[in-house]
Design a protein around this nucleic acid. Structure first.
Lengths: 147, 147
DNA sequence: ACGTAAGCAGAAGTTAACGTAAACTAGATA
DNA sequence: TATCTAGTTTACGTTAACTTCTGCTTACGT
């Protein structure tokens, strides 16, 4: 997990200069944009995280798939498992249902919110420590420079 | 990784009522305080993350070990690997050295800082989404209540 | 002295999240 | 028509971070 991903935020604005339908992406387009392997993208599909159009031989990914991929990777960076991302997607998708279900989704959202707030606190504390250590380190370097 | 840990923030203030030396903890004390198994704590030791006193048969953990354990778990929650936590510990421990080394540590600290800032951004974006979905969900529930 | 609970080490098993290899295919190009 | 390229499936391999199991040792209460 020594990431540092997200290289080229590809400018495939429309992508209708090639054979792909408007607003859809090929597997390599996505893999290049997000710097992950095609295998990984197919793996996410197996897990139910992505649902590209499979009417033709080659998979065609919608904008929705692209957004999901972004969310998956964002979630991963902060320690979400794929299953947890899937859980969140299911909540978003489920849209409108019965009241009991709505309450269920609401409590799940709450659970995630609480966790995210905890994560935020954790990060802020760690950042504070790292920053103070950095400045301490800088002072030492400055002193060494007095030679 | 569906955590929600940190149950009892144990009040072992001194712990000299039992056989343990002042300011030291047993493996079960720590495992209960942080809700992890003793085996896991030994596992962290194998990885070089903890260094309890092993002069006697039973391990004795210092305050330093306890703090480290907290940091390991905090790191885990935000997606750090054990190796990365170890790397951070090594930086802290290394103390004062030669200028070239100091510069090296500084760059490592910088690397972690950048990553943490990215994580923070990720979390804030996710939090915003979750919150808006929550309020949307709430509105739907309110409407359903009109019966 | 004895039973038993707590601690120990070693090894094998488990889960998540992919990577790698082999063998196949559809569509474009020469 | 041949071949080349990007894409496909299937299956096994790998790494991290543990858990579970086995079999042993030490300390404690009676």
């Amino acid at each position: 997990m020594t990431d540092t991903r997200q290289k080229n935020v590809a400018t495939s604005h429309d992508g209708s200069s090639d054979g792909t339908a408007a607003g859809s992406y090929s597997i390599t387009q996505l893999s290049q944009e997000f710097d992950i392997s095609p295998r990984t993208i197919r793996f996410y599909e197996d897990k139910g995280l992505l649902n590209p159009d499979r009417s033709k031989y080659r998979r065609a990914y919608s904008k929705r798939d692209r957004v999901r991929l972004m969310l998956i990777l964002r979630g991963k960076r902060i320690g979400f498992t794929l299953d947890e991302s899937l859980e969140l997607f299911d909540i978003y998708d489920s849209g409108t249902g019965e009241e009991t279900q709505l309450r269920h989704w609401y409590s799940l959202l709450n659970k995630h919110e609480i966790r995210l707030e905890q994560n935020k606190k954790d990060i802020e504390e760690l950042l504070a420590e790292v920053k103070s250590t950095k400045s301490h380190c800088q002072q030492l370097i400055a002193k060494k420079a007095d030679d």
